[in-house]
Amino acid sequence: MREQFPFFKAHPELVYLDTAATSQKPQVLLDAIQNYYVNDNANVHRGLYKLAYDTTEAYENVRQQVAGFLGAASADEIIFTRGTTDSLNLVASAYGPQVVTAGSQIVVTGAEHHSNFIPWQQLAKRQQATFTVTPVKPDGTVDIAALLAAITPQTKVVAVAQVTNVAGDTLPIAKIAAKAHAVGAVVVVDGAQAVAHLAVDVQAMGADFYAFSGHKIYGPTGIGVLYGR
């Protein structure tokens, strides 16, 4: 496996244990990036000449590939962003105010990354909504019973990580989504830590939004995905 990563050829003595934060880059990725700049460099959706058309087609083909990767119903449900943080902020700032109003509730867990905590905290503050943070057990795992109990008819958004970034706890998203949908709430899933390890099916789990970053799954920094049902 190390042979696929030029980084380890430059640092043969290093055992890298921080892939959950960011992954090293395999040669196949570096080759793809170089090939684009050498052979295919053109703006997408901005030109009618063949090079621009071919590049646009390649770009849109990736949208279809990502839809398949996530089990989405359509490529139209895939939005390219700058990363998980950007994706979650986009949902909170663009979609959140449409459903979160004074007196309504947003539910998150105490195990959320700041990217899936602060945007909802600030939205609740702006909209005069209730911001509910459910507890974490002493071992760092999420108290699922407390999370489900916190979802009420006033709940409009439940924002959770599929896999938490500190303890590695895997949450039962389908169970959480069923409870949320029963009261008319939407479920926003931070999938940054999950997509590198789990087979993800956004339809089966009932996610309304799902976000992840490229740099944690051996892709380049500065790209991300937001799925929206």
Rank of each mutant, 00 (worst) to 15 (best):
F69R: 00
F69H: 08
L70P: 02
G71C: 11
A73T: 08
A73E: 14
A73C: 12
S74T: 06
A75Q: 11
A75T: 03
A75M: 08
A75P: 07
I78S: 07
I78C: 08
I79H: 15
F80T: 05
F80M: 15
F80H: 04
R82D: 09
G83I: 01
G83L: 10
T84E: 11
T84M: 02
S87D: 00
L88A: 08
L88D: 01
N89S: 07
N89F: 12
L90S: 08
S93D: 15
S93C: 12
S93K: 02
A94H: 08
Y95K: 13
Y95C: 14
P97F: 01
V100L: 10
T101A: 11
T101M: 13
A102Q: 12
A102E: 06
S104Y: 04
S104D: 14
S104H: 09
Q105M: 06
I106M: 14
V107L: 11
V107W: 05
V108A: 13
V108Y: 00
T109D: 04
H114W: 04
S115G: 03
N116P: 09
N116L: 07
N116R: 00
F117L: 15
P119T: 06
W120R: 02
Q121R: 05
Q121L: 05
Q122L: 14
L123A: 11
A124L: 08
A124E: 07
A124G: 15
R126T: 08
R126Y: 03
Q127H: 04
Q128W: 00
Q128L: 10
A129I: 08
A129E: 00
A129K: 04
T130C: 05
F131I: 02
F131Q: 06
T132R: 01
V133F: 05
V133K: 10
V133W: 03
T134M: 05
T134C: 02
K137G: 01
P138A: 15
P138R: 06
D139V: 11
D139K: 09
D139R: 00
G140W: 02
G140F: 06
G140I: 07
T141G: 08
T141C: 07
T141P: 00
V142S: 01
D143S: 07
D143N: 13
I144K: 10
I144Y: 06
A145Q: 10
A145F: 05
A146E: 02
A146I: 13
L147S: 06
A149F: 01
A149E: 09
A150W: 15
I151C: 11
T152R: 04
P153H: 12
Q154I: 06
T155I: 15
T155S: 06
V157H: 00
V157A: 03
V157I: 14
V157R: 01
V157K: 02
V158W: 11
A159E: 11
V160L: 02
V160T: 10
V160D: 01
V160C: 04
V160I: 12
N165V: 04
V166K: 15
A167T: 10
G168P: 09
G168S: 10
G168L: 09
D169V: 10
D169H: 14
D169R: 01
T170R: 12
L171H: 09
L171K: 02
L171S: 00
P172H: 03
P172T: 03
P172D: 04
I173L: 15
A174R: 09
A174K: 05
